[in-house]
Design a protein around this nucleic acid. Structure first.
Lengths: 214, 214
DNA sequence: GCCAATATGTGAGAGGTGCTAACTTTAGTC
DNA sequence: GACTAAAGTTAGCACCTCTCACATATTGGC
């Protein structure tokens, strides 16, 4: 099993195959699908088009993926890896246990959604074959775990503490909703535009300072 | 223009046509699509299958809708009407200006998402032809307006007040994110399950009481 | 009441898509 | 060098979207 998804550098948009065997088809298909999802929306993608972009026949993808949903799952998996990385990097840029670290994680999340709205939407719209993909579940929990760690450090409590979990979930809900609303009505938020950093700091403070109940 | 979407009662699942002319095809197609979206996921729907359910040929739908996205937009439009209604009803069940009214609106929102996760997701996943449908935009703002009204009454400020707008948006983000996370990992929220009402009351209080900045 | 005009249905069909089957080429192993 | 498995190919079925030409109701003007 060679799940080497990240072998190609992301900048290589179209690297035609070098012979009969492509050598890097799987990764390149994922990259092509990611691009298609981003430009033509989550539905405006077809396996055939992705194969065309990679310069192979329309049947070739099925040597690497069972079916269409599995390709999308591949894209989601790769996206979740990247999301986790930017979240961790954001947290690492601030002192451990600081409110800024928590807010920075949220900002990274929002920025990711804004940078790749199509992929972001795809991550949270996988209904078909979502359950028979425990690795995605695991990766999702991994992302959440980054936030939980920061919150736990901030409150000086263990990550397993119910209060930590609850407040983390509240923060996540908030950031998640903000991200979605943000990419849905892009730049047209009905009200005045929002300074994300101040916004997230305010939210983080409110949620981490308030009393816990219910 | 006869946009009479709500002529059929929702309980009539399959009302076969009565003659050559169907008489109520448009509404029944929307109902069929709504059901398909709910049971087979937002992607597992086809115009042909919807037509089959309504007992007409696969070309008939195109007499009522320009193309596939327009049918989905019809479903979304109808869903937004219903969403607004339940939000208004929830608000009306509590004293004007009370915190309970605000929380009840949020609960109605979450309940809607839980009751019709497929449709709910569809509402917020329309990328194709989303912009050339100003009525959907308007209806979305209408739903938001219900919340804004309640918040304004609660704070005793006019609805146009920037602070009212900001806090409403915060609440909306929260409820929206909670709804999405809720239907994504159904009942498996990693942490202990959540009492929605207490949760929403806590949030509403925190957001409406806290100081406004940024 | 009659007759256009229009609305709403039908079947046939072009072109695209998902996926499979059977075959061919390449790479790795003994 | 032969065998095997991996990774491509073409051909093709079933389905889907959408259009076109045609058939049939409904409606409004006279």
């Amino acid at each position: 099993m060679w799940n080497d998804t990240s072998r190609t550098d992301a900048s290589a948009t179209v690297t035609p195959k070098t012979g009969y065997h492509h050598g890097d088809l799987r990764a390149q298909l994922i990259a092509a699908v990611r691009d298609l999802v981003e430009t033509h929306g989550p539905d405006g993608f077809s396996v055939a088009e992705a194969a065309r972009r990679a310069g192979v026949s329309s049947a070739a993808p099925y040597k690497h993926f069972k079916d269409r949903p599995e390709i999308l799952r591949g894209v989601v998996s790769e996206a979740m890896d990247r999301l986790r990385l930017v979240m961790e990097a954001a947290a690492a840029a601030h002192p451990t246990g600081s409110l800024e670290a928590v807010a920075a994680i949220g900002l990274a999340y929002v920025d990711f959604a804004r940078a790749e709205p199509g992929v972001f939407r795809l991550v949270f719209s996988l209904t078909e074959g979502h359950e028979d993909a425990p690795d995605l579940q695991t990766k999702g929990e991994g992302c959440f775990g980054v936030l939980v760690q920061a919150v736990a450090a901030c409150l000086d409590l263990p990550p397993g503490n119910p209060d930590v979990q609850r407040r983390s979930y509240m923060l996540w809900s908030f950031v998640h909703g903000h991200s979605f609303l943000n990419i849905d009505m892009k730049t047209k938020v009905t009200t005045a535009e929002i300074d994300d950093w101040g916004y997230l700091m305010t939210i983080s403070r409110a949620i981490l300072a308030g009393s816990a109940q219910s």
